[in-house]
């Protein structure tokens, strides 16, 4: 009977989905469990369950500083990457010009570079130019890698965009700027939102580029990496959990702000 076979397929699909979810979330869950221990080594099961690590993490000045450094880098990267990505995508997918195919290839090159090599290369270049690495140079380093990705994400929207919409707006009396604001930008907005989100999260969690380019400043992934390698304590997983929560909060806040802004625009034009 095909009914039995359908049920079997459904059951197998469900099993597969559960398996994938378990594989995704067990590591994260294990970090949460590790953060509730008081041992000097990561191991399970542990005997004592305690929130001491969280008390320590929230009590120390470093936690806030790490978050602040990572946050200002990621927010700046997201904003600049979106700005460059919008115009980069227009050049990538919307307009025909001499050298476009060369531009398309060159733009994608940084994505194919191993990040550690890219980070080292940037450090060497900055040293040669006499620039002292700090969180500002890390913003630049992240952008080198993130802008191509954001450009691609926004370009995908442009490929499905009927250019006649811009002509129609122009024909109906809009100026070039109005055409961009009223037609092109709204059509790209889903790409801009997902591109900005990508940029923020890629920067927030970046380790290989930050290792070489932050100088004396420390980001969250850098601190987590170095404290895991040496001088481990449950403070490390506790801070990792806090950082994950913080990034979720930032993304949620951005989504809420965007939804609120859209409602405002909708009400104003209604």
């Amino acid at each position: 009977m095909s009914g039995t076979r359908d049920r079997l397929i459904t059951a197998l699909l469900a099993l597969w989905t559960v398996l994938v979810l378990v594989l995704l979330y067990v590591p994260i869950l294990s970090v949460v469990l590790a953060s509730l221990a008081n041992t000097r080594y990561m191991r399970f099961p542990h005997k004592v369950w305690t929130l001491d690590a969280y008390r320590d993490a929230l009590g120390q000045y470093t936690t806030a500083e790490l978050h602040l450094t990572s946050l200002k880098i990621a927010v700046l990267v997201a904003l600049i990457a979106v700005l460059l990505g919008v115009f980069g995508a227009l050049a990538f997918a919307r307009f025909e010009w001499r050298g476009r195919s060369l531009y398309q290839r060159l733009l994608l090159l940084p994505i194919f570079f191993p990040q550690a090599v890219l980070g080292l290369a940037l450090l060497l270049a900055m040293t040669a130019a006499g620039i002292t690495p700090s969180w500002r140079t890390a913003v630049f380093a992240h952008l080198v890698w993130v802008v191509p990705i954001v450009t691609l994400v926004i370009s995908i929207r442009l490929y499905g965009f009927d250019v006649a919409q811009e002509e129609a707006a122009f024909d109906l009396g809009a100026s070039r700027l109005q055409v961009f604001r009223e037609v092109t930008l709204p059509a790209l907005s889903p790409g801009i939102v997902s591109g900005g989100l990508f940029a923020f999260l890629l920067s927030w969690s970046n380790l290989p580029l930050s290792i070489f380019t932050t100088g004396s400043d420390t980001t969250l992934p850098l601190w987590l990496f170095s404290r895991t390698a040496t001088n481990y304590s449950p403070l490390v997983p506790a801070l990792a959990v806090i950082a994950t929560g913080a990034s979720v909060l930032v993304v949620l806040a951005a989504a809420l702000a965007l939804a609120g802004w859209r409602r405002l625009v909708a009400r104003r034009s209604a």
């Binding site: 006649a164 919409q165 129609a168 109906l172 100026s175 709204p186």
Partner: peptide, 21 residues
């Protein structure tokens, strides 16, 4: 005179409606 300054309007082959509106 560019299209946005002419007292004319066009109905396009693809219609070119603003899909997000």
């Amino acid at each position: 005179v560019p299209a946005n300054k002419r007292p004319t309007a066009m109905v396009f082959q693809s219609l070119a409606l603003f899909n997000h509106k």
